[in-house]
């Protein structure tokens, strides 16, 4: 029986990990080119779930339309946060630290507005039952929604990879990431690209949020944990490496789930951070990142 449990945990880990990969990419999309530690990304994540809820359950839109609506609205919201808070702050001469502080503040405000609008009751989104009922394979089960999650995550990640490599916008984003000053000099419209990265990153996080909401329902507090996972995966993968972040996200999901095979499951989020601690201590550049400079060298 025990090895079956391990196999089931591995399956759960892959499902969780594919969402973690999306989270990691979504954060990195914003962080890598703009160097904005966008803590309010956690709020965008939560809000996109509630947008979906509002569209699907509140206004009765068909599910696929609601999902699309949630993703687009989240993207717009990300741009809005940047335009209303971060960009004016940058223009007034503030440094990285002020922008980070303001992102905490945005997080706090959005979290409370959410409580006022949707209250703190848990919410579920009605999904066709067939999607959620497990398909048994012996003692193992996988739900169609799990399969859909993994497939969507894979497709989206592949699309992002293609986008970054072959489109003009994608190339511009990578150019800014490598050398923002140079990008300006060669005539890349950095503000436009900045808005695009916020839109893209927020839309990506919304995809992860949508699948989580469909599967597990919504509570106002789920954002921070998601953000933590995204950040840890980005570090472990190596800042600046998109494949690295995605791979690390997947790996984190698997490690978390396999880890609780023997240790009690309430330590799950501690596993994530032990991984982070180990990397910060011994390999701060992550798997694929550029070398991290140290003061002592």
């Amino acid at each position: 029986m025990a090895h079956w449990l391990l196999l089931q945990l591995l399956i759960n880990g892959i499902v969780a990990g594919s969402l973690y990969a999306l989270l990691a990419i979504s954060f990195a999309t914003i962080y890598a080119p703009t160097k904005t530690f966008h803590f309010a990304h956690a709020s965008i994540y939560v809000y996109s779930g509630y947008f979906l809820y509002q569209f699907a359950m509140g206004w009765g839109w068909p599910l696929p339309v609601s999902i699309l609506g949630g993703v687009v609205t989240a993207g717009a919201m990300g741009v809005l946060v940047d335009r209303v808070v971060y960009t004016p702050l940058r223009r007034s001469g503030a440094g990285v630290m002020e922008v980070l502080l303001s992102s905490f503040a945005v997080f706090v405000v959005l979290q409370s507005v959410l409580l006022l609008v949707w209250k703190s009751d848990p919410r579920t989104i009605r999904v066709p039952e067939v999607l959620k009922n497990g398909i048994p394979f012996g003692v193992l089960t996988v739900t169609p929604l799990d399969l859909l999650t993994v497939a969507t995550a894979g497709a989206v990640l592949a699309a992002v990879a293609v986008f970054m490599r072959y489109t003009r916008l994608g190339k511009a984003i990578r150019a800014i990431e490598n050398d923002a000053g140079m990008a300006v000099m060669v005539g890349i419209p950095t503000e436009g690209v900045r808005m695009a990265t916020f839109f893209l990153g927020s839309a990506l996080v919304a995809v992860a949020a949508v699948f989580t909401a469909l599967d597990k329902g919504l509570e106002p507090t789920i954002g921070v944990q998601a953000l933590l996972v995204a950040v840890v995966a980005m570090i472990v993968g190596g800042v600046g490496s998109f494949p690295g972040a995605a791979l690390a996200g997947l790996l984190l999901g698997v490690v978390e789930n396999l880890g609780i095979w023997k240790i009690p499951s309430e330590w799950k989020s501690t596993i994530t951070f032990s991984v982070l601690a180990l990397f910060l201590l011994f390999r701060p550049s992550g798997f694929f990142g550029q070398r991290v400079a140290r003061y002592s060298e």
């Binding site: 025990a2 079956w4 089931q8 759960n12 507090t221 789930n257 609780i260």
Partner: peptide, 22 residues
């Protein structure tokens, strides 16, 4: 014996372990 947090929505992990405890 499995524990969950107050306000938890995702029971996949503890329930997987409980399922296999049969």
């Amino acid at each position: 014996s499995e524990i969950h947090a107050q306000g938890e929505t995702d029971f996949t992990t503890p329930l997987t372990k409980l399922k296999f405890a049969n």
